[in-house]
Design a protein around this nucleic acid. Structure first.
Length: 257
DNA sequence: CAGGTCAAGTCGTGAT
DNA sequence: ATCACGACTTGACCTG
């Protein structure tokens, strides 16, 4: 009678452990500043069946942040060249453009940029001479290819690189900068999707294993109910998890290897 | 025309 | 205070 549940808890603990949910694009926000370049999600799920006294489940490890942000760029990054002047790329937000005027470039750069803006506008000219509306810049294949190429080399640009690339592409440095920003955003989004898929698979796998272990636990409980004496002889204390075959064995029983 | 893509805008934040 | 960056938004353009 009384010996069922109380006696029946041999101290077996079943635990399903998952690391904290992955950073979603939204909660990743500023915390993730250290920068996670597109990389593998380091997930280490844990599922354990243990005797009491042991920890039910390993602490889920903290996922390391994805490695570096391209700090290597910063060595030469002076930012003193007025490289990134005014949001002149678009003539559309007249008043708002003021914001972007933090780097007031000297006339020289300003002219280069104005010229390059014109050049790029005319390059893929769609015929509309109306500059009232913001005109969509479409990068040419060559421009995109070159941008992609340099993105492969470094995902951020220092001012000199930006300048050089802009000159090469006949674009404004600001346009190059924006392209890199958007490119990083796309990369991150893509990586998030990949992570998400990976986590789903992990979840399925762990659920399966959880079910299996729950079943095993039930079997063990049933076994103990059938052999109450076994408990008093200290049998339960000798139950242990065989690391190699991942089954519960008696103390004396050794796994296959 | 709806929905997708992407260049470019705004805003908030951390680093210096 | 300034700057660079990321997140989010806007708007032009494209496509089915």
């Amino acid at each position: 009678m009384g010996m069922d549940d109380d006696l029946c808890t041999p101290g077996l603990i079943l635990g399903l452990g998952l690391p904290p949910a992955p950073d979603t694009p939204s909660n990743i926000r500023e915390k993730s500043k250290p920068g996670r370049p597109p990389g593998r999600l380091d997930l280490d799920p844990c599922l354990t069946l243990a005797l009491s006294g042991e920890t039910a489940c390993r602490e889920a490890r903290e996922r390391p942040f994805y490695g570096n942000r391209s700090s290597f760029e910063d060595e030469s990054g002076g930012g003193c060249e007025g490289e990134d002047s005014r949001g002149a790329a678009s003539s559309f937000s007249s008043g708002k453009a003021v914001k972007r005027e933090r780097e007031v470039s000297s006339g020289d750069d300003a002219e280069i940029e104005r010229a390059s803006s014109k050049a790029s506008d005319e390059e893929d000219d769609l015929g509309g001479g109306d500059n009232k509306a913001r005109k969509k810049l479409r990068l040419t294949k060559d421009q995109s290819a070159l941008l992609e190429e340099s993105f492969k080399q470094h995902i951020t640009l220092n001012p000199k690189q930006k300048q050089a690339l802009a000159r090469q592409l006949k674009l404004q440095p600001r346009q190059v900068e924006v392209w890199f920003q958007n490119r990083r955003a796309r990369t991150k989004l893509k990586q998030t999707e990949v992570d998400c898929e990976f986590l789903k698979k992990c979840c399925e796998t762990l659920s399966d294993e959880n079910r299996r272990l729950q079943k095993e636990l039930q079997e063990l409980k049933a076994l103990k109910l059938a052999q109450p004496l076994y408990m008093h002889m200290g049998g339960a204390a000798t139950l242990s998890m065989c690391p190699s075959c991942e089954r519960v064995c008696r103390g004396g029983d050794k796994g296959p290897s």
